[in-house]
């Protein structure tokens, strides 16, 4: 029965837009289930690195320890190393305590406010033991936050004079299914591309004004009007 008909498809991919933090592509000759599976995997099953264990040495800030630990966990880290890393639960080198170099990255944070101005402790203050795993830098991402010079990463906590925060954090590999902090994507979505047919004959009968109103009726501005031919397209 080896010769049974193969139902394999050969999907086509076309990238429409590709930025550091944004990608948009077309997927053709396959169906929604594949696209959806792709979406689901991107959200939940691609491993990344995120802070998972926090040991707090000193915390005299207004936020409590769990609060800060939770915030640290949600800081995105560059995760190129994720594939070569081990899940700490499968790690043989450290008997599962998840603190060896194969399955973890150590971070340190030391901040103390000494003057009257409030000190923002941000993701930039996190010092990594591994230069490949660092908090994601958004300042040059061109995502609207640019040319903001004092954009210093993600605020963890604000310190007032005399307050101090000192901690050790361990980042581990994980997947989005376990916790959203390991989800690599902010959002993933897809849509069927709409095919819009314009009844050209009818369109011809419309006046320019009516045409513009047709164009304006779309909230997302799908149509344009050709200034020369006065054709809607």
């Amino acid at each position: 029965m080896e010769g049974a008909a193969s139902y394999q498809r050969f999907p086509k991919v076309k990238i429409r837009e590709l930025k550091d933090d944004y990608a948009k592509f077309e997927l053709r000759e396959t169906d929604a289930s594949v696209a959806n599976a792709l979406r689901r995997v991107m959200i939940a099953e691609v491993p990344t690195i995120a802070i998972d264990l926090v040991e707090i040495e000193v915390n005299s800030s207004v936020l409590n320890d769990e609060f800060i630990a939770h915030r640290l966990g949600l800081i995105p880290l560059t995760s190129e190393r994720a594939m070569s890393m081990r899940f700490s639960r499968d790690c043989d080198a450290c008997d599962g305590d998840g603190q060896c170099e194969f399955c973890s990255v150590e971070f340190h944070l030391r901040a103390k406010c000494i003057n009257d101005q409030t000190l923002d402790v941000t993701s930039k203050d996190l010092y990594s033991s591994d230069h490949t795993v660092v908090p994601v830098d958004f300042s040059d991402s061109g995502s609207g936050f640019e040319n903001n010079e004092d954009q210093r990463g993600i605020t963890i906590v604000k310190l007032r004079k005399g307050q101090e925060l000192r901690l050790r954090a361990i980042a581990r590999k994980g997947i989005g299914k376990d916790h959203a902090k390991w989800s690599p994507a902010a959002t993933v979505t897809f849509m069927y591309e709409p095919e819009i047919h314009i009844n050209e004959e009818m369109m011809e009968t419309l006046s320019l004004e009516e045409k513009t109103s047709v164009v304006d009726s779309s909230p997302t501005k799908v149509f344009g009007i050709n200034p020369h031919t006065q054709q809607v397209g």
Binding site: L18, A23, V41, M42, P184
Partner: peptide, 16 residues
């Protein structure tokens, strides 16, 4: 990001 997406595909293929 590019690597990331590739990663997604890779992982996806692996998982299947």
């Amino acid at each position: 990001m590019k690597d990331h997406l590739a990663l997604c595909f890779l992982h996806f293929a692996n998982s299947v």
